[in-house]
Simulated scan of single mutants.
Amino acid sequence: MDQTDTETTLPVRLLVDADACPVREECVRVALRHGVKVTFVSNSFFRIEADPLVEREIVPGNFDAADDRIVEHVTPRSVVVTADILLAERCLKADASAVLGPNGKPFTHDSIGMAVATRSIMADLRAGGAQVGGPAPFAKADRSRFLSALDVAIVRLKRQG
């Protein structure tokens, strides 16, 4: 069996950077509808739905421990949900099939470089004392866009085998 055959026999899996994630319930809803395992990884406890397809991993340790654990789980049949640009970059490098922000915006190999650069510039501006705005408040349209993007990503993976 070659690598492509191995990749298509792996299960589709949804990995969620759960600390401060505003779309946890939506992730569960989509995962259960498609029969896909969803793993929420965080540094702290939170309540989740009790279902064999829903898993919570609480990762003790440093700030990046949850990110490291998510990257360990990534396969070519993983969809990752995170607002963390640096984690998104790591997941893309680890060959995740799709990486989505909670607003439904995909992180891609083509867009991640600009996102990392913008993040770095904003961090430098803040460190220099500049008053720069953060992301826009999470809106109902973001939730809807996320649900659609997640559904499309999972359906695409399921169709691949």
Rank of each mutant, 00 (worst) to 15 (best):
D2T: 13
T4F: 12
D5E: 15
D5I: 13
T9V: 15
T9Y: 10
V16H: 08
D17W: 00
D19W: 00
D19M: 02
C21V: 05
E26I: 11
V30D: 12
A31N: 01
V36F: 08
K37Y: 03
V38M: 01
V41D: 09
V41I: 03
F46N: 03
E49G: 05
P52E: 07
P52V: 08
E55G: 08
R56H: 08
R56Q: 13
D64M: 05
D64S: 03
A65N: 10
V71W: 00
T75Q: 11
T75H: 06
P76Q: 12
R77V: 05
S78P: 01
S78R: 07
T82I: 14
A88L: 06
C91E: 04
C91M: 08
P102M: 02
N103W: 03
F107R: 13
F107E: 12
H109R: 12
D110A: 10
I112P: 09
M114I: 03
V116R: 03
A117S: 00
S120C: 15
R126K: 00
Q131M: 04
P135R: 10
A136R: 13
P137V: 06
F138H: 02
F138V: 07
A141G: 03
D142Y: 01
D142M: 03
F146E: 04
A149H: 02
V155R: 01
V155E: 14
R156Y: 02
R156L: 11
L157T: 03
K158L: 10
Q160F: 14
